[in-house]
Amino acid sequence: MKMNIILKRELSSYFATPVAYVFILIFLMLSGVFTFYIGNFYERMQADLIPFFSFHPWLYLFLIPAISMRIWSEERNSGTLELLLTLPISKEQIVLGKFMAAWIFSGLALLLTFPLWISVNYLGDPDNGVILASYIGSWLMAGGFLAIGSCMSALTRSQVVAFVLCGFVSLLFVMAGFPMVLDVFRGWVPLIILDMITSLSFLTHFNSITKGVLSLKDFLYFLSIIVAWLYATSIVIESKKS
C-alpha cells in the first residue's frame, strides 16, 4: 500500500525535529494542569476522568492546529509538493497518508496520558468502560480537528495563517451547539437547520461519548467529518497548484 510509505515518512519527520517532543510534553503538561487545578480532580472525590476529558476540546483547539499547520504549508513552501505529486502515488493516498500520520501521532500523545488512568484506578474504582470510550472519543475528535487542519494547511503556504484558520474553523465546529452561535441563527432560519447546526457540534458528540455511550451515530459523525474535510483537502490541493 503506497499510503504507508507516505505515512512512514511523515511520522518519522515528526520525530526528526523537536516538534514532536515539544508537542507531547506540552500536551501532557497542560492536560495535567487542566485536570488537577482547573478540573479539581481531587476535590471532586470521584473516581472518574471527567475533569480530564472535558477539557480536551479546548486543549485540541490550539494544540491540534500546531500539528496540522505544517502538513501541506511546509510542502508548498519548500517546493517538495511538486516532487511529491509527481511521484507515482495517487493524490488520495498522499492526503490519507499524511492525515493518518498526524492522527497516529496525536493518538500517541493521548496514549501517553495513561498514568492518569492508572492513578484513578489506584485511588478508587472508576468505570473503565466509560474511560475507554472517552479515550476513543477523544481520539476521534482529534481526527476531526486534524482533518479540518489538513484542509486549512492546504489553503496557504504560511504555517501561521494555517494555524489561525484551523483554530477559527475548529472553534466554529466546537461551538456550533452553544447558545451564542445558535442565537445568531435563531428566529430567522427554520428549526430543522438550527437542529442541523447543533448536531454539527464537536461538543455534543464528544460529551455523549464521555458519558460512556459510544454510539454508532457519534462514531459515524466524526468519521464523516474526517472524510469530508479530507475530500476538501484534495480538492484544495488540486486547485491551488501553480
Binding site: S12, S13, S78, G79, T80, T86, P88
Partner: peptide, 16 residues
C-alpha cells in the same frame, strides 16, 4: 513511472 523529474530549485525533505 516512466519519468524522473527534478523540479525547479531541487526541493527535498530537509530534515531527512
Amino acid at each position: 513511472c516512466l519519468i524522473g523529474y527534478l523540479p525547479e530549485g531541487a526541493p527535498a525533505y530537509e530534515e531527512m
